[in-house]
Design a protein around this nucleic acid. Structure first.
Lengths: 211, 211
DNA sequence: GATAAAATGGACCGGCAAGTCCAGAAATGG
DNA sequence: CCATTTCTGGACTTGCCGGTCCATTTTATC
């Protein structure tokens, strides 16, 4: 069984390691670092995570993966107007501006997600969910006549997801959010532009905004 | 000085390590692996790279960075027609389909580029050059009337670069090139769409291609 | 408060991998 | 062919880090 105290310790270990992994990377984080940071002992770590570092890293991956989508709420789940898309965009940019190179997503994708098959499945699932939310948003905009209904919503969602990922990757490399902003702003402006056609004119759209 | 034999050995070490790093990652590659693969000895490695593993990794980063842009030629330097852009797109997709998760760029961005400041500067430079080539391409398309001249070419280049990076990142996570294709195709189609306006109609364009 | 289960502290082990060292072989150059 | 430099082989050292073990303390349950 697990007492309240035990659960607290376990949680402390996961969160402490997550922070360390975000700061220094998974490879550079030792169990001794975790021990020091969380005021625990080796035996506690192995008591709660018999699988050792690998099991612990998987738990960290789970923990971080959960946060990635949660951090985009409530906007990600209600992308039903251009204003909502803009709010979502702002939220994402703000979030990554805050965390900079120490972002959960970055560490998840570039380090954790490539180690074990289990972590790989986890990140795959995360990306799938993410893309699905975006797809839902695109569909609802199509239904509202704001986006050309002839476009393949899933493909557009994949495209948007790639834009975010690319922006984040470049953030990790350069330390600047410029690319993320350019990627999101341009993509959304272009998408908005598709609504402006003889058949699908949308009074809310403004092509000039992408300039 | 460096004899011909010495230069060959040195080169063998760099290439061998590059291959290993691409296959297994930088952290998982040991100098003993390199030694075995390149039929050399420890003393040789440290003879040519007194700085040890770190110096060697920087050399590997240089080696791989050079290849990234070279692999996109001759198209990247002559993006003067939609056909050229399409050829470039095909080249990129083909290339990454070949190498899959073991691509130079991926390992460079996600592992090498984040270790030392020197490697970071190297990848920064690479990305800058890359974006500049794209910008040049966009400008020449604007001059030809194929892209709306009101768009900020540098921003568009940043957007395109993010699309590629995002596609590659997702390739590394999922093992599939779908996202890279969606990202490039949709971006190019959208960009092409901007040429199709009352003022900038381009007979070569086809909005339907993005559907 | 007795007993069992859970939680904790920390010494210890073993392996791995980076880096050192030196002796000797091969090449260079006059 | 001699002297000097360069190149090579591989044993050895060193430190780190994941993982084990066991004694001890704390908590839960009746």
């Amino acid at each position: 069984m697990l007492t309240a105290k035990g659960a607290a310790t376990r949680q402390r270990i996961v969160e402490g390691m997550s922070a360390l992994v975000r700061e220094h990377g998974a490879a550079a984080t030792t169990l001794d670092d975790v021990r020091a940071r969380t005021t625990t002992s080796k035996s506690q770590i192995f008591h709660y995570f018999p699988g050792g570092k690998e099991e612990l890293l998987l738990e960290v991956a789970r923990y971080e993966a959960d946060r990635v989508l949660l951090d985009q709420e409530p906007y990600l789940s209600a992308l039903t107007s251009w204003q909502a898309w803009r709010d979502w965009r702002d939220q994402v940019v703000r979030r990554y501006r805050e965390v900079g190179v120490h972002c959960p997503l970055g560490v998840l994708i570039t380090e954790l997600g490539r180690k074990t098959p289990a972590a790989q499945a986890l990140t795959g699932q995360l990306l799938e969910q993410w893309q699905d939310r975006l797809r839902t948003g695109v569909v609802s905009m199509q239904e509202g006549g704001h986006i050309d209904p002839g476009l393949d919503a899933d493909r557009i969602a994949a495209w948007l997801l790639a834009a975010v990922q690319g922006g984040v990757t470049l953030l990790l490399s350069t330390g600047r959010v410029d690319h993320l902003e350019a990627a999101l702003d341009t993509s959304l402006a272009m998408l908005r532009g598709t609504g402006v056609t003889p058949r699908w004119r949308d009074p809310e759209s403004d092509v000039a905004s992408m300039r």
